[in-house]
Design a protein around this nucleic acid. Structure first.
Lengths: 189, 189
DNA sequence: TATATAGTGGACTGATCGGTTCACAAAATG
DNA sequence: CATTTTGTGAACCGATCAGTCCACTATATA
């Protein structure tokens, strides 16, 4: 049986992919981060790409979904949408968090050659759809009187603000936070 | 004297960086695209990074600024903002254009290790600021009655929609176009 | 204890990386 | 024509890449 914890190893590798991207994450880096030797990585994950896919699944499960969960529950609280943005804003304010200085693992991948892989591009597109859908449910809970068209428009705007903020967080945290503040301001109207 | 046209060479290299990103654009690829040998590239641009910087400057000058120009003129037409979004939407609809399948050279770089270079991150942050400012001027021309706070908010939202659309264009052109349609819809209100 | 199975570390492969060097070519200057 | 200057292509550099292989270890089963 395996002497290392698979989830721990994937989490460590995930951090490397998050910071450096798929292509620039080297095997020696991944070995160092996971504490595993090359043969163990290849035995457990097949190849570098297999480890990346495991990292993406882990990212969705442990980073994305926990924050979206209140917006995807059967009953959505009226303040769930506000809480989503304040929580994300706090995470981006933490100056040494991966979120704040590396943005979003998936969106970073969107601009890299790895996005030519259909499995990867589908994961990113699916994330955006899920984000939009969850934010739409939050909008419905906050503004029950809003009609479907306006709610869909708001969900598109809010999810775009999230995408822009995560993209900008790597290069200008002030602009990223200001972008999220704009999202919060939109919820007051 | 130089037997090749510098602007032509930079344009060709720019296309490679645009599609592949800085790190994954190899010297052989850049040689092939420009038709130049390695020593000519190094003689003219110093190194790979110098060629990339020239490509970024060329991208701003020939791709970004021409489209923003009507929004940055002394007098901005009321329909300049709408024209910006319809023009961008048409460019992303062109299925074989670099814009449609490679998004934005600068935003792609934002998610890659090259963004750790301060000159690069400043170029990207500056682009976002300029985009926001130009869209704000367009909003003022379209809605002269709008107060400063609302105009700034709208500019932040619109520039975020552009960023999201350019990011998504690499992986899901339908979502990218829908995002720009949302921007156009916001201008009707 | 003997045998089979699963996991691991390190050495190695061929390919490719960015960057450098150098000898030659072409043009300009005297 | 001789010399100098500038530009260029090709060979080469050490380093690093992802991936493979194999001998060895540790555990599990019998």
């Amino acid at each position: 049986m395996q002497t290392f914890d698979t989830d721990d190893a994937v989490r460590s590798a995930r951090a490397v992919f998050w910071e450096r991207g798929y292509e620039e994450a080297s095997l020696p880096e991944l070995e160092r981060a996971t504490g595993l030797s090359r043969s163990s990585i290849y035995h457990a994950f097949g190849n570098k790409r297999g480890l990346f896919d495991a990292a993406v699944a882990s990212y969705l499960r442990e980073i994305i979904h926990p924050r979206l969960q209140p917006l995807e529950a059967a009953k959505v609280a009226p303040d769930a949408l506000t809480n989503y943005f304040t929580g994300l804003s706090e995470a981006l304010s933490q100056p040494d968090s991966l979120q704040s200085h590396s943005g979003c693992l998936l969106l970073n991948a969107a601009g890299a050659p790895i996005s030519n892989e259909t499995a990867v591009s589908q994961a990113i597109a699916g994330y955006r759809e899920e984000l939009k859908s969850a934010l739409g449910r939050g909008a419905a809970a906050l503004h029950p009187e809003m009609d479907d068209g306006a709610r869909l428009q708001l969900a598109t705007v809010l999810s775009s603000l999230v995408i822009a903020a995560m993209t900008l967080s790597r290069i200008d945290s002030a602009q990223a936070l200001a972008t999220l503040d704009t999202a919060l301001a939109l919820l007051q109207d």
